[in-house]
Amino acid sequence: MCRNIKTLFNFEPPATEAEIQASALQFVRKLSGFNKPSQGNAAAFDRAVIEVSDAARRLLASLQTQAPARDRETEAQKARERSRLRFTA
């Protein structure tokens, strides 16, 4: 899995449109192997980002959970701690 794609479901506050778009862009970059597509591939690349964003938005809207929403700052702190442990060894 691409490490740059963040979990967007079950957070308070909910994922923003910018976060969904950024995740879609990272996903399409990973699949295509392009960080920035050539002019000939730009339309297909941009269309794929839009379609993945739409699919992600529908997915997030349809998921259900009984778990309480996670706090973004708490999860970010946990990630920083995991990173610190990983890279200071």
Results as ranks from 00 to 15, higher is better:
residue 80 R to V: 07
residue 76 A to P: 01
residue 29 R to A: 03
residue 46 D to L: 04
residue 62 S to Y: 09
residue 87 F to Q: 14
residue 53 S to T: 13
residue 70 R to L: 10
residue 55 A to L: 05
residue 38 S to E: 04
residue 77 Q to Y: 06
residue 82 R to F: 10
residue 6 K to G: 02
residue 14 P to E: 15
residue 46 D to R: 05
residue 45 F to I: 02
residue 76 A to T: 00
residue 21 Q to T: 09
residue 86 R to D: 13
residue 49 V to D: 05
residue 14 P to V: 15
residue 88 T to Q: 13
residue 32 S to H: 03
residue 55 A to C: 03
residue 84 R to N: 12
residue 19 E to V: 08
residue 82 R to E: 10
residue 18 A to G: 04
residue 78 K to E: 06
residue 14 P to S: 15
residue 49 V to H: 03
residue 19 E to F: 06
residue 7 T to H: 14
residue 84 R to I: 07
residue 39 Q to T: 14
residue 70 R to S: 07
residue 74 T to I: 02
residue 61 A to L: 13
residue 11 F to K: 10
residue 68 P to A: 10
residue 14 P to Y: 10
residue 80 R to L: 09
residue 52 V to M: 11
residue 11 F to L: 13
residue 78 K to S: 06
residue 34 F to C: 02
residue 66 Q to S: 11
residue 21 Q to N: 11
residue 75 E to G: 02
residue 20 I to V: 15
residue 35 N to G: 08
residue 61 A to V: 07
residue 35 N to K: 09
residue 86 R to V: 12
residue 78 K to C: 05
residue 34 F to K: 05
residue 18 A to W: 00
residue 69 A to N: 10
residue 44 A to T: 12
residue 10 N to K: 06
residue 36 K to L: 12
residue 41 N to P: 00
residue 87 F to P: 08
residue 31 L to T: 01
residue 60 L to H: 14
residue 89 A to R: 15
residue 51 E to W: 00
residue 57 R to Y: 07
residue 8 L to M: 12
residue 7 T to S: 14
residue 84 R to A: 12
residue 60 L to V: 12
residue 37 P to V: 02
residue 45 F to C: 00
residue 59 L to M: 15
residue 65 T to G: 06
residue 31 L to C: 04
residue 48 A to E: 01
residue 55 A to T: 00
residue 31 L to G: 05
residue 16 T to I: 06
residue 56 A to Y: 11
residue 53 S to N: 13
residue 6 K to Q: 13
residue 31 L to E: 01
residue 10 N to Q: 08
residue 69 A to S: 12
residue 51 E to R: 04
residue 33 G to W: 01
residue 28 V to M: 04
residue 44 A to M: 12
residue 43 A to L: 13
residue 71 D to C: 08
residue 17 E to H: 04
residue 54 D to R: 01
residue 42 A to W: 08
residue 64 Q to D: 14
residue 31 L to I: 02
residue 44 A to K: 09
residue 83 S to L: 14
residue 85 L to C: 08
